[in-house]
Deep mutational scan, measured.
Amino acid sequence: NITNLCPFDEVFNATRFASVYAWNRKRISNCVADYSVLYNLAPFFTFKCYGVSPTKLNDLCFTNVYADSFVIRGDEVRQIAPGQTGNIADYNYKLPDDFTGCVIAWNSNKLDSKVSGNYNYLYRLFRKSNLKPFERDISTEIYQAGNKPCNGVAGFNCYFPLRSYSFRPTYGVGHQPYRVVVLSFELLHAPATVCGPKKST
């Protein structure tokens, strides 16, 4: 009989979030998941669920729940959905087409922007091929755009693959930082360890 609440607040209220290319994953298990708490945590810009209804979450049980978190800019949030393409979905964080879970995003301009520009958040701009779903690539190998090998040196047709967002508070919403948490629900042929409040007794 599990009584402890799932530590969603640790994920959502973390002081620092990860850069999207090096997104963070927390496995959540053996706890009571009260998803209604999430609705009250922040004024969400996005709370979209796929393959599951957000209002039914509190009635369900899962084997595992994974919470992935990272920062992107406002106009990239739409890429965090099944079947999307674009720089983020292709080279940084890719959801599977049959994704079961929820994408939660909110504006973090007050936390993640600086007047002089916050350069701490990076994204991958160049990659030889698209990522597979939930693949994480943290390599910093020089990207070869031409025929000549780069031998690890940046220059003509040889690019450092990561680029930094420079978040400034005066930017338009599309270029402001957004914190994203992706909850993916895993149903294996194994005992369910993460249940809503109704199912945990």
Results as ranks from 00 to 15, higher is better:
Arg27Phe: 07
Ala14Ser: 07
Gly146Ala: 08
Gly155Ala: 09
Ile138Val: 09
Asn58Tyr: 08
Tyr159Trp: 11
Leu122Ser: 03
Asn87Pro: 02
Pro149Arg: 06
Arg78Trp: 04
Lys26Ser: 14
Asn109His: 14
Ile2Met: 01
Phe44His: 02
Arg16Asp: 02
Ser129Asp: 02
Arg27Ile: 09
Asp9Thr: 11
Val115Trp: 15
Leu125Val: 00
Leu125Gln: 00
Pro149Gln: 05
Ala42His: 08
Val37Phe: 08
Asp9Trp: 09
Val173Trp: 05
Tyr119Ile: 15
Gly83Phe: 12
Thr55Tyr: 03
Gly174Glu: 02
Ser184Cys: 13
Gln144Met: 12
Ser29Phe: 09
Val173Asn: 00
Tyr66Phe: 08
His175Phe: 03
Tyr143Met: 14
Ser29Tyr: 10
Leu131Ile: 02
Arg16His: 00
Thr193Arg: 09
Ser184Gly: 04
Val173Tyr: 09
Ala33Trp: 12
Glu186Ser: 11
Asn4Met: 06
Ala67Val: 10
Arg73Asn: 13
Leu60Gln: 02
Ala145Ser: 11
Asn118Gln: 15
Asn120Gly: 04
Ala14Asn: 04
Asp59Thr: 00
Lys56Ala: 12
Asp98Lys: 06
Asn147Gly: 00
Thr193His: 06
Arg73Ser: 03
Tyr66Leu: 05
Thr15Pro: 06
Asp97Met: 05
Leu162Phe: 14
Asn1Arg: 04
Val194Thr: 03
Leu5Ile: 11
Val32Lys: 04
Lys199Leu: 03
Gly196Tyr: 08
Lys199Arg: 09
Ser200Val: 01
Asn1Gln: 06
Ala192Phe: 01
Leu125Phe: 02
Asn147Thr: 06
Gly196Ser: 04
Val11Leu: 10
Ala33Gln: 14
Tyr143Ile: 08
Ala33Ser: 11
Lys110Asn: 00
Leu188Gly: 10
Asn120Thr: 15
Leu122Lys: 00
Asp98Thr: 05
Leu122Asp: 13
Ser116Lys: 15
Phe160Gly: 12
Ala105Phe: 13
Phe45Leu: 05
Gly152His: 14
Asp59Lys: 08
Gly51Lys: 08
Val115Met: 15
Thr193Lys: 05
Asn4Lys: 06
Lys198Ser: 10
Ala145Gly: 09
Phe126Ile: 13
Pro197His: 04
Asp97Asn: 09
Asn118Gly: 15
Thr201Met: 01
Thr3His: 02
Ala192Trp: 03
Asn147Asp: 08
Asn4Ser: 05
Ile138Arg: 14
Asp59Ala: 13
Tyr66Asn: 10
Ser116Ala: 03
Leu111Ala: 08
Gln84Arg: 05
Ala33Val: 10
Trp23Phe: 14
Leu188His: 01
Pro149Ser: 09
Ile28Tyr: 04
Asn40Lys: 05
Asn87Arg: 02
Thr3Gly: 09
Leu60Gly: 11
Phe47Gln: 13
Arg163Met: 01
Lys128Ser: 04
Asn24Ala: 05
Ser129Asn: 09
Lys132Met: 02
Val173Pro: 00
Arg16Ala: 02
Leu111Trp: 05
Phe126Ser: 02
Pro149Val: 08
Thr140Ser: 02
Phe134Gln: 14
Leu60Arg: 10
Val153Lys: 06
Gly155Glu: 13
Gly174Trp: 02
Thr193Glu: 10
Gly152Ala: 13
Thr85Asn: 14
Leu187Lys: 00
Tyr39Ala: 02
Ala105Tyr: 01
Thr85Gln: 03
Gln144Asn: 05
Lys198Glu: 02
Lys198Met: 01
Val37Ala: 02
Lys26His: 12
Leu125Ala: 09
Thr201Asp: 01
Ala154Val: 00
His189Leu: 13
Phe62Pro: 12
Asn151Glu: 10
Pro191Glu: 03
Asn147Met: 03
Lys128Ala: 07
Ala192Arg: 04
Phe44Val: 03
Ile138Asn: 00
His189Thr: 07
Arg163Ser: 08
Thr63Met: 13
Ala154Phe: 13
Thr193Ser: 07
Pro149Cys: 14
Asn4Ala: 06
Ser184Phe: 11
Ala190Phe: 12
Thr100Tyr: 10
Gly174Pro: 07
Val173Ala: 10
Thr55Asp: 08
Phe156Arg: 13
Glu10Lys: 07
Val32Gln: 11
Lys199Thr: 01
Lys198Cys: 08
Thr201Asn: 01
Pro54Arg: 00
Gly174Asp: 04
Gly174Lys: 10
Leu188Thr: 05
Pro191Asp: 01
Gly117His: 15
Tyr66Trp: 03
Tyr39Val: 05
Arg168Lys: 13
Asp97Lys: 11
Lys199Val: 00
Lys132Asp: 11
Phe62Thr: 04
Asn147Phe: 08
Asn151Ile: 14
Val173Glu: 07
Gly196Arg: 11
His175Asn: 01
Ala145Leu: 07
Asp75Cys: 10
Lys56Val: 13
Leu122His: 05
Val115Ile: 08
Leu41Pro: 02
Arg16Tyr: 06
Asn120Leu: 10
Asn151His: 07
Thr55Ser: 10
Pro169Gly: 15
Thr15Val: 07
Thr100Gln: 12
Ala67Met: 13
Gly155Ser: 11
Val52Cys: 12
Ala190Gly: 13
Pro7Ala: 12
Tyr66Thr: 09
Asn64Arg: 01
Lys26Gln: 07
Ile142Trp: 14
Val32Leu: 05
Val153Cys: 04
Tyr39Pro: 09
Ser29Arg: 02
Ser139Glu: 14
Leu125Tyr: 04
Thr85Ile: 08
Val77Leu: 09
Ala192Thr: 05
Val173Cys: 08
Thr201Lys: 00
Phe44Asn: 10
Phe126Gln: 04
Arg16Ile: 11
Glu76His: 13
Lys198Ala: 09
Ser29Cys: 14
Gly146Ser: 01
Asp75Glu: 13
Thr201Ser: 07
Phe156Ile: 07
Phe44Tyr: 06
Leu5Ala: 01
Ser108Ala: 09
Leu5Gln: 01
Thr3Val: 13
His175Trp: 13
Phe156His: 11
Arg27Lys: 08
Thr170Gly: 15
Tyr35Ser: 11
Asn64Trp: 03
Leu187Ile: 00
Val65Ala: 08
Asn1Pro: 05
Asp34Asn: 12
Ala14Gln: 08
Tyr39Arg: 01
Thr201Tyr: 02
Ser164Leu: 15
Ser164Lys: 11
Ser116Tyr: 15
Asp98Ser: 11
Asp59Arg: 10
Lys48Gln: 08
Lys128Thr: 08
Ile142Met: 00
Ser36Arg: 12
Ala22Met: 02
Glu10Thr: 13
Ser129Lys: 04
Pro43Gly: 10
Phe44Asp: 06
Ala190Met: 03
Tyr35Gly: 13
Thr55Cys: 10
Thr170Tyr: 15
Thr193Gln: 02
Asp97Glu: 09
Glu186Lys: 04
Phe160Ser: 09
Leu111Asp: 09
Gly51His: 12
Asn147Glu: 08
Gly152Thr: 11
Arg27His: 12
Phe8Trp: 05
Phe160Pro: 00
Lys132Arg: 07
Ser200Ile: 02
Arg163Thr: 13
Ala22Ser: 10
Asn130Gly: 11
Ile138Thr: 02
Ser166Asn: 13
Phe160His: 01
Ala145Met: 11
Leu187Asp: 13
Thr193Asn: 00
Asn147Arg: 02
Phe44Gln: 06
Ser164Pro: 06
Lys148Gln: 03
Phe134Gly: 00
Asn64His: 00
Val153Met: 00
Tyr119Leu: 11
Pro149Gly: 09
Asn64Gly: 10
Ala33Met: 03
Pro7Ser: 02
Ala154Met: 03
Ser36Lys: 12
Gly74Gln: 14
Ala154Lys: 12
Asn151Trp: 02
Thr140Met: 11
Asn109Lys: 15
Phe45Ala: 02
Asn130Arg: 00
Lys199Asn: 04
Lys199Trp: 07
Tyr66Met: 06
Leu162Ile: 12
Ser164Cys: 14
Leu60Ala: 09
Asn30Pro: 14
Pro54Gly: 13
Val32Tyr: 07
Ser184Lys: 12
Lys110Gly: 08
Glu135Gln: 02
Ile2Tyr: 08
Asp59Gln: 12
Ile88Val: 14
Ser164Asn: 13
Phe160Gln: 00
Asn118Ser: 15
Pro149Met: 13
Ala190Ser: 00
Asp90Glu: 12
Thr46Trp: 10
Ser164Asp: 15
Ser36Glu: 07
Val194His: 09
Gly83His: 04
Asn13Met: 11
Ile138Ser: 12
Gly117Ala: 15
Ser164His: 05
Ala18Ser: 03
His189Arg: 01
Asn58Met: 13
Thr85Lys: 02
Leu187Glu: 09
Asn130Ala: 12
Arg27Val: 11
Ile142Phe: 13
Ile2Lys: 08
Ser166Leu: 14
Val194Pro: 06
Phe62Leu: 11
Ser184Ala: 10
Tyr39Gln: 04
Gly51Asn: 14
Lys56Leu: 07
Asn87Asp: 10
